[in-house]
């Protein structure tokens, strides 16, 4: 395992760094922007993995829709509420320790597993053609696609129903 590709290293640093910034920065709105940058980094990984279709989907959905939604929500919530969240030092320290143990354990497990064997899996395989993705989606996975459309529609109706304000409506009659 030798990482000598500067592009890979730069995208890794961008993604991991902005993920940490998203969780640790004091202002929640900068956190939302950092999360969007992290998602862009993930899209960069998808491009490095020769999956341009998934990368474009990622940029459209995460950077275009989810990040904007989060930023709007942050703006709707009163600024005082964003800052009054008390930081629990003991909880933070135990979280860091727990995650470090978890990451070292899982990383060591992955490194000794067969995954690092280049004969089993490597990047010299031919990349997947995005036409094949479309074919797969519209033939074998077409029921999943329909169910996904229903789930998206249901979630949008649910979000709208949740956000409805009854008190204003009754005032109007």
């Amino acid at each position: 395992m030798v990482m000598d590709d500067p592009v890979f290293l730069a995208v890794s640093a961008l993604t991991v760094g902005s993920a940490i910034v998203a969780l640790e920065t004091r202002e929640l709105i900068y956190g939302g922007i950092a999360l969007a940058i992290s998602m862009l980094g993930i899209a960069g990984f998808f491009l490095l993995l020769d999956s341009p279709f998934v990368a474009m989907f990622q940029i459209l959905v995460y950077v275009g829709a989810v990040a904007v939604l989060i930023i709007f929500t942050v703006m709707l919530v009163r600024t005082q509420a964003l800052f009054s969240t008390k930081e629990d030092k003991g909880r933070k320290a135990s979280g860091v320790v727990l995650v470090l143990i978890f990451m070292i354990g899982l990383g060591a497990l992955l490194l000794v597993s067969g995954l690092s064997n280049p004969q089993l899996m490597n990047l010299q395989m031919p990349p997947v053609d995005f036409k094949a993705i479309g074919e797969e989606m519209l033939t074998y996975y077409s029921p999943v696609l329909i169910a996904l459309g229903l789930v998206l529609g249901g979630s949008i109706i649910g979000a709208l129903a949740l956000a409805r304000r009854e008190d204003i409506e009754t005032k109007d009659g």
Binding site: M1, D4, D5, G107, L111, L115, P118, N122, L123
Partner: peptide, 11 residues
């Protein structure tokens, strides 16, 4: 860069 590097970043 191999697949394991991407899996590590994901971890």
């Amino acid at each position: 860069v191999e697949i394991i590097d991407y899996v590590m970043i994901s971890t």
